[in-house]
């Protein structure tokens, strides 16, 4: 079968949904497909650095930054989160079952050349600067994503 392209929109900033997105992305890349992940809205939280430099921001954007999870290790579950306890339990069970952690999956995706694009419009709304997100991202908008999706035979919204 010919190598094809897959695009995944990562809209959610929930741990479980981020895991699903990265497992599919890594699986597709392992099968020889080109993969583009487009991170928008809450999905950008997955890409936040823990050690982000501080910036002068508007009041609401400062609030967003302070209240949303800062990076992949801080994400909660979409269900049964129980104020973060659920996410901790999920990570524990996954370690026991030898499932790769979200951080490992992100690293594997980079090693496999999965293209990760951060939506600049969402970044403006939520008040994230480029240096507040992890390295190796591209910064673009909906047209770039649509251009990639045109060439893809699978497109997921997670």
């Amino acid at each position: 079968m010919e190598s094809t392209k897959k695009t995944i929109i990562v809209f959610s900033g929930d741990l479980d949904k981020a895991l699903a997105a990265f497992i599919i992305a890594n699986g597709a890349a392992a099968m020889g497909d080109e993969v583009t992940m487009f991170f928008t809205f809450w999905g950008l939280n997955i890409l936040r650095r823990q050690d982000a430099p501080s910036h002068q921001k508007g009041f609401l954007q400062g609030m967003f930054g302070g209240m949303m999870p800062r990076g992949s290790t801080r994400l909660g579950l979409s269900k049964m989160n129980f104020g973060g306890m659920g996410a901790g339990m999920m990570r524990k069970v996954m370690r026991q079952e030898h499932v790769a952690s979200l951080e490992e999956l992100i690293q594997i995706a980079r090693d496999q050349g999965v293209k990760m694009i951060a939506c600049t419009m969402s970044m403006d709304v939520l008040g994230f600067r480029e240096d507040e997100l992890i390295d190796g991202l591209e910064f673009a908008g909906v047209a770039t994503y649509l251009g990639e999706a045109d060439e893809a035979n699978v497109n997921l919204f997670i």
Partner: peptide, 13 residues
């Protein structure tokens, strides 16, 4: 062995 999805196909690649 010991890895879960998608570990085995990553290893195969």
């Amino acid at each position: 062995r010991g890895t879960s999805c998608p570990g085995p196909i990553l290893a195969a690649k």
